[in-house]
Amino acid sequence: MKRAAILALGTALGLMPFTYAAAADAPAAKAGKTAPYKAPRNAFGQPDLSGYWSNATLTPMARRAEHRDRLVLTEDEVKKMEANAEREVEEGNEPTDPDAPAEHRATPTVVRPEFAAAGGDVGGYNRGWLDPGNHVMRVNGEPRSSLLTTPNGLPPPRKAGAPAPPRFGGGMGAFDSYETRSLGERCILSFGRNSGPPMFPNGFYNNNYQVLQTADTVVIQVEMIHDTRVVRLNAQHRTDGVRPYMGDSIGRWEGDTLVVETVNIPQAQQFMGAWKDLKVTERFTRVGKHRLHYAFQVEDPTVWDKPWGGEYEFSPLEGMIYEYACHEGNYALPGILAGARVEEAEKAAAASAAKPPAGASAP
Rank of each mutant, 00 (worst) to 15 (best):
P36C: 12
P36Q: 09
P36G: 08
P36V: 06
P36Y: 07
Y37P: 01
Y37I: 01
Y37D: 02
K38A: 14
K38M: 13
K38S: 15
A39M: 04
A39Y: 06
A39K: 06
P40Q: 12
P40F: 09
P40L: 10
P40R: 13
P40Y: 09
P40V: 10
N42T: 10
N42C: 12
N42A: 13
A43K: 11
A43T: 10
A43Y: 07
A43Q: 15
F44Q: 07
G45T: 04
G45R: 08
G45E: 07
Q46R: 02
P47M: 03
P47H: 04
P47F: 02
D48A: 12
D48R: 07
D48C: 08
L49E: 01
L49Y: 02
L49W: 01
S50M: 02
G51S: 00
G51A: 00
Y52E: 05
W53G: 04
W53K: 06
W53N: 04
W53P: 01
S54Y: 01
N55M: 14
N55F: 12
N55Q: 15
N55W: 13
N55R: 11
N55V: 12
T57I: 03
T57K: 05
L58D: 03
T59Y: 03
T59H: 05
P60L: 12
P60Y: 10
P60G: 09
P60W: 11
M61K: 11
M61D: 14
M61T: 15
A62Y: 13
A62T: 13
R63G: 05
R63L: 05
R63Y: 02
R64W: 15
R64C: 13
R64L: 15
A65I: 07
E66V: 09
H67K: 02
H67V: 02
H67A: 04
R68C: 10
R68I: 08
R68N: 13
D69Y: 09
